[in-house]
Simulated assay, not measured.
Amino acid sequence: MPTLRMMVVAGAAALLLAACERDAASDIAPAPRPVRTTTIEKRESPTPFVFTGHIEAEDEMSVAFRISGRLLANNIRLGDRVEAGQLLAQLESQNELNALRQAQAALAAAQGQLTQARNHFERQQTLLAQGWTTRANFEAATQAQQTTQSQVDAAEAQLSAAHDQVNFTELRADAPGKIIETGPAAGEVIQAGQTIARIARQDGRDAIFEVPAQLIRAAPANLQVTVSLTDDPAVSAHGRIRQVAAQANPVTRTFEVRVGLTDPPAAMRLGATVVGRAEASAGPMIDIPATALTRMNRQPAVWILDPSTKTVSVRNVDVLRFDQAQVIISQGLDAGEIVVTAGVQALHPGQKVRILGSEP
Results as ranks from 00 to 15, higher is better:
Leu293Arg: 09
Arg205His: 02
Gln111Glu: 13
Asp80Tyr: 10
Gln145Leu: 00
Ala237Ile: 09
Asp232Trp: 01
Arg135His: 08
Arg315Trp: 07
Ile76Trp: 03
Glu56Phe: 07
Val9Ile: 05
Val9Cys: 01
Gly85Val: 04
Ala57Phe: 09
Gln299Met: 08
Arg315Val: 05
Ser150Asp: 05
Gln324Pro: 14
Arg242Met: 07
Ala105Cys: 04
Asp287Tyr: 01
Asn249Val: 01
Thr309Gln: 00
Arg354Thr: 04
Ser236Asp: 03
Lys178Asn: 13
Met7Gln: 07
His238Glu: 14
Val9Arg: 12
Ala301Trp: 09
Ala200Lys: 14
Val235Ser: 06
Val274Met: 15
Ala346Tyr: 11
Ala18Arg: 04
Leu71Arg: 12
Asn222Cys: 08
Ile196Phe: 09
Pro46Ala: 10
Asp306Tyr: 03
Gln243Lys: 14
His163Trp: 02
Gly239Val: 02
Asp231Glu: 00
Ile199Tyr: 00
Ala129Glu: 14
Gly332Ala: 04
Asn75Phe: 08
Arg135Ser: 01
Ala301Asp: 11
Arg22Glu: 03
His163Ser: 00
Phe138Ala: 01
Ser26Val: 12
Val225Lys: 06
Gly357Val: 10
Asp263Tyr: 09
Ser236Cys: 11
Leu88Ala: 03
Asp203Asn: 10
Gln326Phe: 04
Thr309Glu: 03
Pro233Phe: 00
Ala346Cys: 05
Gln299Asn: 13
Ala13Cys: 08
Gly343Asp: 01
Ala141Ser: 13
Ala141Asn: 06
Arg242Phe: 03
Val9Phe: 01
Glu256Ile: 15
Phe255Val: 08
Ala157Trp: 04
Val9Ala: 02
Leu107Ile: 14
Leu97Cys: 03
Gly332Glu: 08
Met7Ile: 07
Leu320Lys: 08
Thr262Cys: 07
Asn249Ala: 04
Leu78Ala: 06
Arg33Ala: 13
Gly332Ile: 05
Asp206Gln: 13
Arg22Asn: 12
Asp287Ile: 03
Gly112Leu: 12
Glu21Arg: 13
Met268Asp: 00
Thr133Gln: 06
Val225Ser: 01
Arg258Thr: 08
Asp59Thr: 15
Pro307His: 07
Pro233Gln: 07
Gln113Leu: 02
Ala109Gly: 14
Gln331Thr: 04
Ser45Val: 05
Ala200Glu: 06
Met285Gln: 12
Glu60Lys: 12
Ala109Cys: 05
Ile179Gly: 09
Gly260Val: 04
Asp23Met: 10
